[in-house]
Nucleic acid binder design. Structure first.
Length: 425
RNA sequence: GGAGAGGUGGCUGAGUGGUUGAAAGCGCCCGCCUGCUAAGCGGGUAUACGGUUUAUAGCUGUAUCGAGGGUUCGAAUCCCUCCCUCUCCGCCA
């Protein structure tokens, strides 16, 4: 959510920023018009209310002094009626304004490159050498099947296409990845471990910005009006919903494992092969609540924390800085980490590290107080995947496969998996 | 799911239709006093939005006692619905 005051006073800048994000700037004119009418009307109602309050005190005084207040009371009845009518009108206008505001995306940061879509994203860093197998290597689909790591048919029988069922060594490898990542972030990067609810209210999902825009991309339990979380960002960010943190506890850093649920409507073909795009997947998520003065430095360390996972596993990756047109609704700046999948032949997005500045904080009323005396201000929130497992597993198994069909695991995973090699069957 | 109790400012806690935005205490801030410390004395101490202003401060208006609605000239106070916490019961991995 952007503050109305900012829009009022810097209309042209806001228009420019939002249109870079693909938002229709004309909508802002409509918004400003509603705002102006609302304020005009509010002034009128509040004037009447002031009058009522004064007269009401007068009634109280007369009664205390034992005098008759019948005349004043009759007048007030009429005044109250007018206030009620106007109140309803301002309430309706207020709701209309709120609706419009909640649909406005965040402004991109000045450093975010301007561009219209994924084609304008910029590769800003890369690490490791992409693996080139000197033998006839198998792709993820073949490996998952031949080593019996995932039973897609069983998953589909249970829940439908896109719900992978990890079996035996695959299940163990999945758990090893999760534990490895959680330990790395909590022991070495200073994050506090959280195990959150996997369902979430409309309110909480509106804070993080997936609502109202992405309602149809999520699973909804209609009996309770709860959504299955598309990412642990939702519960983690809402831990401090409606609260005021103290300056010296910043930055607050949380890491959580969760399953994530996404309907992924409209996906098809190559995109959805194997583990590339699924409806339920596991992810370790990192969320930070930081001081607004240094949130961009915090974004860099967040990105480094996510990169550490990939480096520790020895997997080649690149860092992509998203352009304005590809930025998500709530983000001001975002880096994607993409792993190299040598056989599938693609760079696979396994992490997004974003700075939301005060956008989510405003929606969720997440604030802090500068020193003791200052007024509460909004914190900046950041989050990054650290990282999502399905594509990590794709890049990992394609990279570490041997000519004999076995997988030789990276050193960092051996103790978590309990063996250095996954042998062919 | 059923029954009961409760939800008031940073905290504890009074209040029960009208000078209550809210007593009192604690905490915190400023000042005074005092070899130091402690104590004591005086004053101050919520948030949001709007008007005024170039803007802030200031002044001023409105709203806010879990949330929403209702009764009333007037609601923290009465009524209804919902949410949350606690206790007991039921069900359950």
């Amino acid at each position: 959510m952007l503050p109305m005051r900012l829009i009022r006073h810097n209309l042209e800048q806001v228009k420019a920023g939002l249109s870079n994000k693909g938002f229709d700037p004309l909508e802002l004119d409509r918004l400003v018009a509603v705002d102006a009418r609302l304020r005009e009307k509010t002034v009128a109602v509040e004037r009447l209310k002031a009058e009522r309050n004064r007269a009401s005190d007068e009634v109280a005084r007369l009664k205390r002094e034992g005098q008759s207040a019948q005349d004043r009371i009759a007048e007030l009845g009429e005044l109250t009626g007018r206030i009620k009518v106007l109140d309803r009108e301002t309430q309706a206008m207020g709701a209309e304004l709120e609706q419009k505001l909640i649909w406005l995306p965040n402004l991109p940061h000045a450093s975010t490159p301007v561009g219209q879509g994924a084609g304008h994203n910029q590769v800003v860093a890369s690490w490791g050498d992409p693996v080139e197998h000197p033998f006839d290597a198998r792709d993820q689909v073949e490996l998952l099947a031949s080593l019996q790591l995932v039973d897609f048919a069983a998953g589909a029988r249970i829940a439908g296409k896109g719900f992978p069922l990890y079996t035996d060594r695959g299940a163990r490898l999945e758990r090893a990845l999760i534990n490895f990542m959680l330990d790395l972030h909590t022991r070495e990067h200073g994050y506090t471990e959280i195990y959150p609810p996997f369902l979430s209210t409309r309110r909480s999902i509106t804070t993080t910005g997936q609502l109202p825009k992405l309602e149809e991309d999520m699973y909804l339990t209609t009996m309770d009006d709860l959504f299955l979380i598309p990412t642990a960002e939702v519960p983690l960010t809402n831990i401090h919903q409606e609260s005021v943190l103290s300056e010296d506890q910043l930055p607050v850093k949380y890491a959580a494992f969760s399953a994530c649920f996404r309907r992924e409507a409209g996906s098809y073909g190559q995109e959805t092969k194997g583990l590339l795009r699924v409806h339920q997947f596991n992810k370790v998520e990192l969320v930070k609540f930081v001081h607004p003065d240094n949130s961009y430095e915090e974004l860099e360390t967040l990105r480094a924390d996510a990169e550490a996972v990939l480096r520790r596993l020895g997997l080649a990756y690149r860092v992509v800085e998203l352009c304005t047109g590809d930025l998500s609704f709530a983000a001001a700046k975002c880096y994607d980490l993409e792993l190299h999948a040598p056989v599938t032949g693609k760079w696979l997005e396994v992490s997004s590290c974003s700075n939301f500045e005060a956008f989510q904080a405003r929606r969720g009323r997440i604030r802090f107080r500068r020193g003791d005396s200052g007024k509460p201000e909004y914190v900046h929130t950041l989050n990054g995947s650290g990282v999502a497992t399905p594509r990590l597993m794709v890049a990992l198994i394609e990279s570490c496969q041997q000519a004999d069909g076995s997988l030789v695991l990276p050193e960092a995973l051996v103790s978590y998996y309990g063996a250095p090699v996954i042998e062919p069957l």
